[in-house]
Nucleic acid binder design. Structure first.
Lengths: 209, 209
DNA sequence: GTGTACATGTAATCCGTTACATGATTCC
DNA sequence: GGAATCATGTAACGGATTACATGTACAC
């Protein structure tokens, strides 16, 4: 049947979530992604999760069954990983080329364009980012706390601890950058209008994608 | 004329690069993105850069002229930001909603699925990631060094210092995670086959996208 | 009775990549 | 003579999002 492990990473992430549980609905998966995957990968939208689940089922990596509530009216579809699915995702973990981590940090992009920013606004953006990092750290910490007892969650738990430190560092570095920029504003103080010593950007070698 | 600041972030990143220089070709931009944007945002492909440049020109945010070599044969197209472009990208920096930073860390995803990994392979993946982070740190450091003298590059320089610390931390945390996992392997040692105490994943609240 | 959470999907759209095509120049 | 770099683009594809559509259950 369907062969090759050429699915997008998102599919493996979803299948990986299924490998941690017995049975989950699309809705469950989204909610769970929001408090686990979210910290180090990203949380796909509802619509994509439903689409991924269909694809996984088509590949034979997951099965689903309709569960009815007592009254037998509304149904929901619960998904479970199959042995083939477990094997496939294991194969992906162990044998597929590891993609470079992707970082799209729009806050840093704005700081990089600081010469175009109103100083107060830039400070505000960084302050909000510091709060964001702190909130993320707290959430990760709470989740790490919740999973640390169960030995079945050893790996997620270890990654969660990584996340806690990551967001801690994120906050610290942003604070220091903010301080740096404040120093810049008080020291150099270019009155107005960019100095005309602008040289043409001269990229130096090192083309490592 | 084209109005509104509803362009994808990538467009602003490209226009932002133009705001740092006088004139750049698409090729220049790609090369430069590889050693600057790359560290905190990502480097778009050639084809996208060319497409973005056309779009920016269509919006009146950039102009281009064809530059011929001495022999007058091969031409290349050099792009420059316009006043309207400078204003537009400033407006984006100061007034558009700041998107949450995006992190897609496929190494952590694999670690999170460590129960499916061959321990040696997982260790290898992490080791390679440590080397990757070290290489990125070194590149960022070299670039920070190169830009620290010129006051025109104060903001990019500050961001570059942020990057150096970021990749330093990345390396450190990965090393510690590796140590954690090694401890895990020697301590708990589940002989084979997952323990059947698997509980259904019970997501807890906190839906913060 | 009104809002929030549960629950699942379709359609349109677009962002971005890879693969492909082309050709000059420079270095070894 | 051949590889690497400069230089620009097109076409096909697919990944992912937003907006829309729909309906139940439950708490206040």
């Amino acid at each position: 049947m369907p062969s090759g492990s050429d699915l997008p990473t998102t599919s493996w992430a979803v299948l990986g979530m299924l490998s941690h549980a017995d049975e989950l609905s699309g809705y469950d998966l989204k909610k769970w992604a929001d408090w686990s995957l979210q910290f180090f990968y990203w949380s796909p939208s509802f619509s994509q999760i439903y689409a991924e689940l269909k694809r996984l089922e088509k590949h034979g990596y997951a099965t689903s069954r309709t569960v009815l509530s007592e009254d037998g009216v509304r149904g929901k579809r619960m998904y479970a990983i199959t042995p083939a699915g477990r094997e496939a995702v294991s194969h992906w973990v162990n044998h597929s080329p590891v993609e470079a981590p992707v970082l799209k940090h729009s806050v840093m992009l704005r700081a990089w364009l600081g010469h175009l920013a109103e100083p107060d606004r830039l400070r505000e953006i960084l302050t909000e980012h510091i709060d964001y990092a702190e909130a993320m750290r707290r959430r990760a910490e709470a989740d790490a706390e919740g999973s640390k007892t169960n030995p079945d969650w050893a790996f997620p738990s270890a990654v969660l601890r990584w996340c806690v430190r990551h967001y801690e560092a994120e906050r610290e570095f942003a604070k220091d950058l903010l301080a740096d920029l404040d120093k810049l504003a008080t020291t150099g103080r270019n009155p107005r209008g960019r100095s005309r010593s602008r040289r043409t950007a001269k990229p130096r070698g090192s083309t490592r994608p």
